[in-house]
Design a binder for these strands. Structure first.
Length: 752
DNA sequence: GCGATCAGGT
DNA sequence: CACACCTGATCGC
């Protein structure tokens, strides 16, 4: 698999070389234009960066040229799962390779130096003070937070409750239930969410308030009074406005219970608290849904990916992790709060949502900015282009990571940010695939598979003119179709909206293969939902005179065991391709970070308040493994202290810095040390492709520089440098490297 | 008519 | 499964 980048794939035309002539004849016959697929043969672009995700990545590769890097080759071909995480350490060194010299370690640097100190503090404009309403309809009372109590105007929009999934009405029920809820697994969650007693007390107070005023909230879920979880916002809490937002969900199964019955509200009796509940009267405004607690970062007034909840009480700054509908939903051009996101996402937001520029703040990957006295750092999320995770370091020193949607990869374990902030107090985690059954291959492998399947299809249908159609979202899945385009020299067409979105990505490789004329492209990228037989039949009807067959490709994490469907004209194949972490990747990532608490940000069912349960065993260690004297991962310490490292020959270039390898995973910690001996270093530049799309390593650094962002605000930006070397040495300092604690590493891969 | 939300479907 | 949309219906302005 790793040979992905080495395999020389035949281009579309080559595969059908023999058919070409006849093809042309046919074409002439049918259509004069005959652009049938013989796309720019000249464009045999080397499918170099198949794995490249963004321009950033490609840059990195260039930068690495000629540099000695430590790389690892994950053997995944033979085995079903790649275990990309195995590349971890090597990836780190690779990224730091620019200045890294194995033989001459530099003196350790003081930890103080490394972290990018807050540089400039930036107070946000509209910030704290005037909280504006998310929706201008300020006129209408409902939205305003203050309306909690007075909010009587029921909802105007009395949509006939369609077979209410029970959600709406039930929600309130939940509220009540919550109170009475007995403890179960959920309790744990609750505890987690309510760490300090102080906070708890506040919550109570708040909840009380709510309950009283809650009555106003009618049938809508918003009405549900859940205890508030806005922690750390003391002052705000007291304000009357508080009501709306963060309600603490008590996920309780009750919710579930209630929901399941889909029955109408009749059962609402549970909802005691709500006093006078104005049924659906003529409320003018729709109330936004209640904001689940995990949308607001504890200890801050920041809301992440929460735009559909109106003006969340106490929230002063909003963050958008990436441009996918389920995350920006609710964000409209009327939005009027400071909004932070990556440059790519910002471009998309400007283009499609048209949020007022004055509210848009960009945080580039690996850039740190001060927001309301909190250090905020954006980290590449390895999800879709522009997707980032946000790392918050509060003035109190508390560290909180919000992953947004992400696909954990080994490179993330190399981020100096994590090495320098070993104590993650809270982790908001994307648990989309938090199920042992979800275990998919590395993206690069998926790409290989796609190339193989498509190549085989083309070869098996020699004299056919084939239109390839790949499913995609507005953003995401680019790696698949880009690889196909480059490998088979195809021109790509997609709808104007997606084309516009692509132009926001700053990904030149994509731009190169795109064309505006669908008749001149034999690879079309269309909405994922249209990659179904009936839809494709219809789609193909417009191109039947130009093509003989259509091959639909559906890249998704759900296509793991899907079987291809080959028809006379329409064929479809599913490609297992995920932009979310697999179960194992999640586990490894959590074990790596070892946060004190973990809160899932992915609802399990329809109820936004009920999210997944992250196994505590992943981050709460009790066993002997956590008591190792070294205080840090043996593998890396061993590596760093090894005076002489040998560079194995190519065949043995496999890198196993992680103490565990597949063969060892079943054994226990005892074997870990043995595995460490497998560590090897290899000078390589091209293996980056294995990483799929994780540009992270490019920015490994510990130093920082200051500059100004597009807003003229001074920011902190770390740059790679010799600091990277220092980092290596500093690894000897438990205080700094503790991140990779042995306990975690030892059984990192020993899933079962 | 456009914007926005929501339910339902894929 | 439930990703990340789509589509259609319903309202509001």
């Amino acid at each position: 698999m790793s040979n992905v980048g080495k395999i020389r794939l035949k281009t579309f035309s080559e595969l059908q070389a023999t058919a070409e002539i006849s093809l042309r004849i046919e074409t002439d016959k049918t259509k004069p234009t005959e652009d049938n697929g013989h796309r720019t043969p000249e464009k045999k672009s080397p499918r170099k960066s198949r794995a490249a995700t963004t321009a950033r990545k490609s840059k990195k590769q260039e930068g690495n040229l000629g540099v000695v890097t430590v790389t690892s080759t994950v053997k995944r071909s033979s085995k079903k799962t790649p275990l990309p995480g195995q590349m971890r350490i090597d990836a780190f060194f690779k990224s730091a390779s620019k200045n890294y010299k194995v033989e001459t370690p530099l003196p350790p640097i003081s930890s103080s130096k490394k972290i990018s100190p807050p540089v400039v503090k930036r107070k946000e404009p509209a910030g704290a003070k005037g909280r504006k309403r998310l929706f201008d309809d300020s006129t209408t009372t409902s939205s305003t937070t203050s309306t909690w109590s007075d909010h009587k105007p029921p909802q105007k929009r009395v949509q006939p409750l369609r077979s209410a999934k029970g959600k709406e009405n039930l929600s309130e029920l939940d509220v009540i239930d919550l109170c009475s809820e007995d403890d179960d697994e959920r309790t744990i969650k609750e505890e987690e969410r309510t760490p300090s007693p102080v906070k708890a007390s506040k919550q109570v107070a708040i909840s009380d308030q709510k309950t009283n005023s809650a009555s106003s909230k009618p049938t809508s879920p918003e009405g549900s009074n859940r205890s508030m979880s806005l922690l750390g916002m003391g002052s705000n809490v007291s304000s009357p406005d508080i009501g709306q937002g963060l309600l603490r969900s008590t996920p309780s199964r009750k919710t579930k219970e209630i929901k399941k019955p889909k029955t109408p509200p009749s059962t609402n009796s549970k909802r005691i608290k709500k006093p006078t509940t104005p049924p659906a009267t003529n409320s003018k405004q729709r109330k936004p849904k209640p904001c689940p607690p995990y949308k607001v970062v504890e200890g801050t007034t920041f809301c992440v990916d929460g735009f559909q909840f109106g003006d969340v009480a106490g929230v002063t700054h909003y963050f958008l992790t990436h441009y996918h509908a389920d995350h920006y939903i609710g964000l409209t051009k009327k939005f009027s709060h400071p909004l932070y996101m990556s440059p790519i996402t910002a471009r998309l937001v400007r283009l499609f949502i048209k949020v007022d520029e004055k509210y848009i703040h960009e945080i580039d990957v690996d850039e740190t900015v001060m927001v309301d006295n909190v250090e905020v750092t954006a980290i590449e999320a390895n999800h879709c282009p522009g997707a980032v995770m946000f790392f918050f370091k509060l003035s109190s020193g508390e560290c909180i990571l919000h992953t947004g949607d992400f696909r954990a990869c080994s490179e993330m374990e190399s981020l100096p940010l994590f090495w320098n902030n070993t104590n993650i107090d809270l982790l908001y985690l994307d648990t989309t695939y938090l199920n042992k059954n979800y275990n998919f291959c590395h993206q690069s492998e998926s790409v290989d598979r796609a190339l193989h399947l498509v190549g085989a299809f083309i070869e098996k249908n020699p004299f056919k003119r084939i239109l390839i159609v790949c499913g995609s979202y507005v953003i995401g899945k680019e790696k698949i179709w880009l690889a196909l385009a480059e490998a088979f020299s195809l021109k790509v067409w997609t709808e104007s909206s997606r084309s516009d979105a692509i132009s926001c990505l700053g990904w030149d490789d994509l731009q190169v293969v795109l064309t505006d004329d669908p008749t001149k492209a034999n690879l079309h990228v269309i909405p994922m939902g249209k990659i179904s037989y009936p839809s494709l039949v219809e789609y193909f009807s417009q191109f039947e005179d130009q093509y003989d067959m259509l091959l639909g490709i559906r890249p998704s994490g759900w296509e793991k065991n899907s079987k291809p469907s080959f028809g006379k004209k329409i064929s479809t194949i599913g490609i297992e391709y995920s932009e979310h972490s697999s179960y194992k990747e999640l586990e490894r990532f959590v074990r790596f970070l070892k946060p004190k608490r973990v809160i899932s940000t992915v609802p399990v069912g329809r109820d936004l308040f009920v999210t997944g349960d992250v196994p505590k065993i992943w981050y709460q260690y009790q066993g002997p493994a956590s008591m190792l004297s070294t205080g840090f991962q043996r593998s890396i310490s061993t590596f760093l202290t090894t005076p002489k490292r040998t560079v194995p020959n190519a065949s043995a270039s496999e890198m196993m810095l992680s103490p565990l390898k597949e063969s060892c995973s079943d054994h226990g910690e005892e074997d870990s040390m043995e595995c460490v001996s497998i560590v090897s270093i290899k000078s390589s530049v091209s293996e980056n492709t294995n990483i799929g799309a994780c540009p992270i390593p490019e920015k490994v650094h510990l130093s920082e520089t200051r500059g100004t962002n597009n807003k003229g605000v001074i920011t902190t930006r770390t740059e790679d440098s010799k600091e990277a070397i220092k980092m290596k040495d500093s690894a000897k300092e438990p205080a700094i490297v503790r991140r990779l604690t042995s306990d975690a590493s030892d059984d990192w891969l020993s899933y079962s």
